[in-house]
Design a protein around this nucleic acid. Structure first.
Lengths: 129, 129
DNA sequence: ATACGACTTAAACTAGGGTTTAAGTCAACC
DNA sequence: GGTTGACTTAAACCCTAGTTTAAGTCGTAT
């Protein structure tokens, strides 16, 4: 099995090493092995789990909830229903947030249109002088 | 012209009164009038500006940037280009964020599918006993 | 006139999410 | 064998975005 150092993991996911250490400290990443010098070694499994953590982070799940989810993964097969329920709820929350952002974007687009018109009108006015 | 009290504004936009006060204190809402007892009165113009603030908030623009934008609105016509540029940049940032969230959502959907399968397989296994 | 509810303020406090710091270990090169 | 560079830790610090608190004002109903 291939292992990644913290710098490799950091590069692969484009996330700072300090964040990786922070996530481990917060319990988002567990069972990370160490070499004899005490350096973190990320197994392929760990890298997959990390990718999941980053998906959840990226969709604004709070660290405490991600921790709960990762704890359930650790706990094993009898938490699959809980995990499914959590992911379904989170999916809906993400869809809601995206739709709310898309809505607000319409207001922003309206501003862009109006400002462009104003600038254009000013230019036309100048020509007529 | 019709004026809204803070409680009406709060109800209309479904935002707490303390946030409205906070936004005013941070300079996101300016020139809010007061009645003789010192209570805030939101004009229709103010309500429109507030809606804009909430659009920007909702799309994760930091308070300091929203303040810059509102200051430019106060400053008048000669900041229209700056405002247009800011809105264009922000629009792109929002589109990027939405697309990144949509990407991460695929990972979440994959989990949902896999968990559903595992639960289904378990049920099938039970039937066969 | 007094009690009540809605309103006000500045300032302190909280939570979330990191980053930085201080002090130290290890191993490989010169 | 000593310096260098990558790594480690716990704890302190920082910023953003609010919420809460303490103290007080106003005006209407009783």
């Amino acid at each position: 099995m291939k292992y990644c150092s913290i710098s490799e993991a950091s590069a692969k996911f484009n996330i700072s090493e300090s964040k990786l250490r922070y996530y481990e400290k917060q319990g988002l990443l567990t069972r990370i092995e160490r070499d004899k010098a005490g350096r973190r070694l990320f197994s392929e499994d760990q890298m997959a789990l990390l990718e999941t953590v980053l998906c959840l982070k990226n969709t604004h799940m709070p660290i405490s909830s991600i921790k709960q989810y990762m704890d359930w993964i650790e706990e094993g097969e009898n938490t699959v229903e809980l995990r499914l329920e959590m992911m379904n709820k989170h999916k809906q929350a993400v869809l809601d947030e995206i739709s709310s952002m898309t809505d607000s974007l319409k207001g922003i687009d309206f501003k862009i249109t109006r400002y462009s018109e104003r600038i254009q009108n000013r230019k036309n006015g100048e020509e007529e002088r």
